[in-house]
Simulated assay, not measured.
Amino acid sequence: MNSNNIFPIFRKYKNEKSFFKIISKTEFEEVKLLKDKAEIHHFTANILPDFNFISDMISDFEPYWEISSEKEFETIKSKI
């Protein structure tokens, strides 16, 4: 992971059902779109798999995530 990352970083799943705002190397927010509603979750990493998940979103994102933007994230979040 590049230590020069500027946060927040925005990602989304390729199916556009979850949108992520990566706040730091240890925490993120997720807006999850469900069939008839949306949910927001704040997540803080506490164990190695969690740290790895965040690291993957930041640096090795292409197989699972796409780049998103603050505008896209906030638009989806405002629908909650």
Rank of each mutant, 00 (worst) to 15 (best):
M1V: 11
M1G: 15
N2Q: 10
S3L: 15
N4I: 02
N5K: 10
N5D: 04
N5M: 01
I6D: 02
I6M: 07
P8S: 02
P8Y: 04
F10N: 03
F10E: 03
Y13T: 15
Y13L: 15
Y13N: 10
K14W: 01
K14V: 03
K14T: 07
E16L: 07
K17Y: 01
K17A: 09
F19Q: 05
F20I: 12
F20A: 03
I23T: 13
I23P: 00
S24C: 08
S24A: 12
S24I: 04
K25P: 02
K25F: 15
K25H: 15
K25W: 12
T26D: 14
F28M: 14
E29C: 09
E29M: 13
E29T: 06
V31G: 06
L33E: 13
L33G: 00
L34G: 00
L34W: 10
K35Q: 09
K35E: 13
D36G: 01
K37W: 04
A38V: 04
A38Q: 14
E39Y: 07
E39N: 13
I40G: 01
H42Q: 13
H42I: 08
F43E: 12
F43N: 09
A45G: 09
N46Q: 10
N46G: 14
I47G: 00
I47M: 04
P49F: 02
P49K: 05
P49V: 09
F51S: 01
F53V: 00
F53K: 14
S55G: 11
S55W: 01
M57N: 06
M57G: 07
I58T: 08
S59I: 05
S59A: 14
S59F: 11
D60W: 08
F61R: 07
E62A: 13
E62V: 09
P63A: 06
Y64G: 00
Y64I: 07
W65M: 08
W65Y: 15
W65A: 05
W65I: 05
W65C: 02
E66F: 00
E66K: 12
S68A: 11
S68T: 02
S69A: 05
S69H: 06
E70L: 06
K71P: 00
E72R: 05
E72H: 02
E74W: 01
E74I: 07
E74M: 12
T75S: 09
I76L: 05
I76N: 04
I76S: 04
I76G: 04
K77M: 09
K77D: 03
S78D: 11
